[in-house]
Write a protein that binds this DNA or RNA. Structure first.
Lengths: 137, 137
DNA sequence: TATTGTTATACTCTATAACTATA
DNA sequence: TATAGTTATAGAGTATAACAATA
């Protein structure tokens, strides 16, 4: 088949597609994908976080965040409240419904994770994490 | 920042985005991305390969291949010739121009790869490959 | 009946550029 | 001037469903 299997980028991409597929088919009834899930996790852990902070933490452009937040607003999972100290900022908060949904999502996500992490010993997993983090410092 | 950095899926996704960005900015003047590149590599290594075989090797749906092949046809990088033994099949071949373009692309891709592989010792790299392959068997 | 290629359609995620309101 | 959010637009890559031609 050639050189492809010996390329780092190819192997990471294939792994990512495999994970994405399993996630899509098992988490959130196919309506929530990794990016949206990450955003919910972030909002839960940082109530009132602003879009710009999300963009920086996830290392993606702030314009990309807008659409994700709007999708969560439409699902009534988050609300935005303008900051009183800096009116440019809008704090994002999980709603009760969002929190409930996230509980379910987290459960499904953990089962999804487990289907892959159980392929590794804990030493191997720690090693894999360390190596991947060197790629996205 | 919470639980995200301890998730396998999150780390693979972040690594993939980092690799994708570097690839986009350094290979093929931003006009060729990993999927198209993979397809060219596959066609070069298997002259006359059919779309269905590409789909199987890359583990993506055959409908997805159509658009990629058409883009390469428009760039005059590949040609399709109907098989004489099974007229449903269309063998895909790299043109001279495609081969020349691929030589340039491969050089840029190797430099791109090197920017990441040099973050690891050869043992670490072998380990990383082995671990990633367990995720996409 | 099954397979190959195709079309149509839709979705996620990302990006850039330019704008508004605010600081 | 700089920052936060937004809008508009674009593009890659994936998927499903249905179809024609061929086997």
């Amino acid at each position: 088949m050639g050189v492809l299997p010996n390329l780092l980028g190819y192997n990471v991409r294939r792994a990512q597609i495999a994970l994405w597929r399993d996630f899509s088919r098992t988490v959130g009834e196919g309506e929530v994908r990794p990016a949206l899930f990450s955003l919910m996790i972030l909002v839960e852990a940082n109530p009132g976080i602003a879009q710009i902070d999300i963009a920086n933490q996830l290392d993606i452009d702030k314009a990309t965040i807008v659409g994700l937040v709007q999708r969560l607003q439409k699902r009534s999972c988050v609300v935005c409240r303008q900051s009183t100290v800096d009116r440019r900022r809008q704090g994002i908060y999980l709603t009760d419904r969002g929190a409930a949904e996230l509980r379910q999502l987290r459960q499904e996500m953990l089962e999804h994770e487990a289907r892959f992490t159980r392929l590794f010993s804990s030493e191997e997993l720690a090693q894999l994490f360390a190596l991947l983090r060197r790629i996205h410092p």
